[in-house]
């Protein structure tokens, strides 16, 4: 298949904490703040939730124009947009280091990790797919989506082609998640 001319413009990193982890929200906010205070020009907002509230209730939200972080007692999400002059891998490694440092400082164990990368294409993806897919309704549609999942080592990799010509949507999304049955903590692997 001819490779489209693409550019990664948004990445979401997800860290799933080990079940029944002892997580003190204020401690984690404080550690994250120390690591990311130069990345965000805003302050993190702690959400006043009782300690015994369900684990999936968000405890903190921290938004800026190009960066966003939220966490509950189950998971932490960090999203960043990638300015053109930055290398996405460099940003990813630096942000991951900072977040992992904060998480480890609070003695929290990571069981699973996930990564969603949104990719912009300057080529028309539908035209590209039409060369390989000959389904009349697909080829003539204004809206065409195709997706599949692959198992690569310990990871599930979903690939999505999302095309909506009336909304000028034309993107590829990779959604990569470590498998639930392959817990990182049981293999001596950290989220790093």
């Amino acid at each position: 298949m001819k490779s489209p001319n693409v550019n990664i413009y948004k990445v979401q990193m997800a860290y799933f904490f080990k079940e029944k982890s002892e997580i003190r929200a204020f401690g984690l906010i404080s550690s994250l703040y120390n690591q990311l205070k130069d990345v965000f020009r805003t302050e993190p907002q702690s959400i006043p939730i009782p300690d015994d509230a369900p684990g999936d209730v968000p405890r903190c939200v921290w938004n800026d124009v190009n960066t966003s972080l939220t966490f509950s007692k189950i998971r932490l999400n960090f999203t960043f947009n990638i300015p053109s002059k930055f290398n996405w891998q460099e940003l990813f490694v630096k942000f991951n280091e900072k977040i992992m440092f904060a998480i480890e400082e609070c003695d929290i164990v990571i069981d699973r990790v996930g990564l969603v990368a949104e990719i912009m294409s300057s080529d028309n993806l539908h035209d590209l797919l039409k060369e390989y897919i000959s389904i009349e309704k697909f080829n003539n549609a204004k809206e065409a989506n195709i997706s599949w999942v692959e198992n690569i080592q310990l990871y599930n990799v979903w690939t999505y082609f999302l095309i909506n010509e009336s909304r000028d949507e034309n993107k590829i999304v990779f959604d990569i998640n470590s498998l639930p049955e392959c817990k990182l903590s049981e293999q001596g692997i950290s989220g790093r």
Partner: peptide, 19 residues
Amino acid sequence: ISAIDKMKQMVVDFYGVYL
């Protein structure tokens, strides 16, 4: 088709990321 994506990227670039 990529005009809106490019516009979105320009706004991202305008505000940048701090390290």
